[in-house]
């Protein structure tokens, strides 16, 4: 692959880097808010993916002026508007959950919450609970 070609795929490189960064944060961070941040980055990479593919070289915004012109494909933009709304809803809901978790557990660290849950489970699992 020539350097020029690779550079021509610049958008897609960015998409991949963002996607992996986001996923990595989701997996590796124990802090629930940071996980949401990771999720956001992950989703943003998809937005960029869609918008990149709508781009037509030399095209302009698809506004009909009568003159024959080259337009960028408007559909991916529209789709991504929807996806952004979905993403915001997810973020809002996720953060709301984190607030509730903070109230209930007094922590937003995954491992601490897990520890508390485990303790609760052992309570249920007292001897005699198993027949």
């Amino acid at each position: 692959m020539e350097f020029k070609d690779a550079f021509g795929l610049f958008n897609y490189w960015i998409v991949i880097v963002l996607m992996m960064t986001g996923l990595y944060i989701v997996v590796s961070r124990g802090n629930l808010v940071k996980k949401i941040v990771g999720l956001n980055i992950f989703q943003t990479s998809v937005f960029l993916l869609y918008i990149s593919m709508g781009k037509v070289t030399g095209g302009t915004a698809p506004i009909l002026t009568g003159k024959p012109e080259v337009f960028s494909n408007p559909l991916p933009h529209v789709l991504i508007l929807t996806a952004i709304v979905v993403g915001i809803a997810t973020t809002a809901l996720g953060l709301a959950l984190v607030v509730r978790i903070k109230n209930a557990y007094n922590s937003i660290e995954e491992d601490e919450i897990q520890k508390l849950d485990l303790a609760a489970e052992n309570e249920v699992d007292e001897p005699g609970a198993r027949p």
Partner: peptide, 20 residues
């Protein structure tokens, strides 16, 4: 049961990754 919250959160993270 407060564990519903962490269950919902996990589901949210996994579900969003799946949907994405």
């Amino acid at each position: 049961d407060r564990r519903a919250l962490s269950a919902a959160y996990t589901y949210l993270v996994m579900g969003t990754i799946g949907a994405t």
